[in-house]
């Protein structure tokens, strides 16, 4: 039994090391963003917010931040709507070519983002659709919709299809059944999808780099700053990007984890 305990402790220690591998570098970068010295060398000199003040006053950074927010919100709204529509279509209908349809719904994230960015730049470039915030939105929706679709489809698969049929039998139209049965039931997943797609769009830098052109989002700014000199400003911008996206991802998970308590079928939305 001592051996059992030893094995268990070793394995748990290993889990901590693995989580440390994931979180420690970002924590270090966060700490250095408050370090007054120019170079990320131990020991840390003195605490200061000078790099945050520097990026606050840096026009390209604040512009990129605004673009990222506008793009993230638009992408979240559009891809969650398309994701919901697709998940519902898969839930309710069977039709010829459904496998192809579902492949279209789920494949894009398995294509490397570099290639997605490249093909969209080639294609959208032909019709003069590159270099604007809406170009990034068009491209990001392709990439984000599968995540929204998957979350909402999982939620729908927990629902008894007879609930909707019961509503029809009681005289509800398809639209009313959608509003009073399907929507309330899927609402937690819809919110989770909104936050998750916003996070994925806010973080995505390769597609945005290609089709955005002069429209730099915040992670693209980080990518471009990385090509230049080492500067603690990158730590500061990076910490802001990290803080925003981790908040969005945590919110998405909170909505998923509390799904049981929030579903009240029949209540108007």
């Amino acid at each position: 039994m001592i051996l059992d305990r030893l094995i268990r402790r070793t394995l748990l220690g290993y889990v901590f090391v693995a989580l440390g591998f994931v979180f420690v570098p970002i924590a270090i970068s966060f700490i250095f963003s408050f370090n007054e010295g120019r170079f990320p060398i131990l020991p840390i000199e003195s605490f200061s917010t000078v790099w945050y003040e520097a990026i606050w006053n840096e026009a390209p950074v604040s512009r990129a931040f605004r673009f990222s927010i506008v793009i993230g919100l638009s992408v979240a709204a559009i891809s969650t709507f398309i994701g919901f529509a697709t998940a519902y279509t898969d839930f309710r209908y069977r039709f010829f070519g459904k496998n192809v349809y579902l492949a279209l719904a789920l494949l894009p994230p398995t294509i490397p983002v570099l290639i997605l960015g490249l093909i969209m730049l080639m294609f959208l470039g032909r019709v003069s659709l590159v270099g604007e915030p809406h170009s990034v939105i068009f491209a990001h929706v392709v990439y984000c919709t599968p995540f929204a679709m998957a979350l909402i489809r999982l939620r729908l698969s927990q629902m008894d299809p007879d609930l909707e049929r019961a509503a029809w039998n009681l005289g509800a139209t398809s639209w009313r059944a959608m509003r009073y049965v399907i929507l309330p039931f899927t609402m937690p997943a819809i919110f989770a999808a909104l936050f998750l797609t916003a996070a994925v769009s806010f973080d995505e830098f390769m597609i945005a780099f290609f089709v955005g052109g002069v429209t730099e989002t915040l992670p693209v700014r980080v990518l471009n700053m990385m090509q230049g000199q080492v500067s603690p400003r990158i730590n500061a911008v990076g910490s802001v990007v990290f803080a925003v996206s981790i908040t969005l991802v945590i919110l998405a998970q909170v909505f998923l984890l509390t799904r049981r308590g929030t579903s009240r079928v029949g209540a108007p939305v």
Binding site: V22, P25, I26, S29, L196, A199, V200, D203, F205, P219, V222, L223, M226, G238, S239, V241, F242, S245, I246, V249
Partner: peptide, 8 residues
């Protein structure tokens, strides 16, 4: 997994 790969 969903957080700032480039920053990490």
């Amino acid at each position: 997994f969903f957080t700032s790969y480039i920053v990490r």
